[in-house]
Design a protein around this nucleic acid. Sequence first.
DNA 1: ATCGGTATTGACAATCATTCTCAATAAGCC
DNA 2: GGCTTATTGAGAATGATTGTCAATACCGAT
Lengths: 129, 129
Amino acid sequence: MKRNTWQREAVRTALNERGDFISAQKLHTELKAEGSTIGLATVYRALTDLVTADEADALQSPEGENLYRACSSDGHHHHLICRQCGHTEEIEAEAVESWAAKVAAEHGFTQPRHVVDVFGLCRECTLSP
Amino acid sequence: MKRNTWQREAVRTALNERGDFISAQKLHTELKAEGSTIGLATVYRALTDLVTADEADALQSPEGENLYRACSSDGHHHHLICRQCGHTEEIEAEAVESWAAKVAAEHGFTQPRHVVDVFGLCRECTLSP
DNA sequence: ATCGGTATTGACAATCATTCTCAATAAGCC
DNA sequence: GGCTTATTGAGAATGATTGTCAATACCGAT
Ligand SMILES: [Mn+2]
Ligand SMILES: [Mn+2]
Ligand SMILES: [Zn+2]
Ligand SMILES: [Zn+2]
């Protein structure tokens, strides 16, 4: 039986308000800055659960950190991320989905998973870097 | 002035003989198993240098480890990697290249870069896991 | 071939994100 | 209100990677 706690809700709310990708560490720091007494391990657990429940997306930053973001659209999708400010836009990639499945099958690979992310500079960061 | 050492050469040779992606840690273990006295930090340094010199490719495993591989083909390309044994095949992704550029432009993003990797189980690992 | 300046090395410590441990706490059900 | 037990949080543990620094050895100059 899964129980509802204010900690889980605090993480969910913080992610939703933010909108962009953030690390577990930074999220924990922000929550404590607002007065929360939530523990770091709990933030990790909540984020992992949100990803499992398809309420959040996760990806690795180029530096190897795990970043989390509230999912606005349902189902599998990918991201266009500003490497300057973290601003994120969700993108559809149906063509990439079928391409990944096809190329795996052609080489005899099974259970394919793919990592497809596009990093760039958003409009604002392009103008004022 | 860059100097030539047997350590750097040992890492380059080991990477070339292997052909597949491998972590710095595993590579160091294998080298020592063959009697080498090379240090772990040196393996990390050599791999970083090889990537800088475009003699090796690097990518992050889904577990967050950095993996390295000797570059066989020149220029930009992507990989199909067995997450069980590390066996790797280079793949063309022309359709994905143009898709990434287009989706970035459509959202006002500049200087786009993309991460495109496919992980699965190779034919052999599918049969005997 | 010898010498000397300095890149490079390697053992070890340090860092950093993430996970584990486990006693204390508090949801949810009666 | 009590009980059961999932959940929490502080701190330890892990594991990859990087930093430190004295000792080493490459290589150009002599
Ligand atoms: Mn996809
Ligand atoms: Mn590409
Ligand atoms: Zn931006
Ligand atoms: Zn395999």
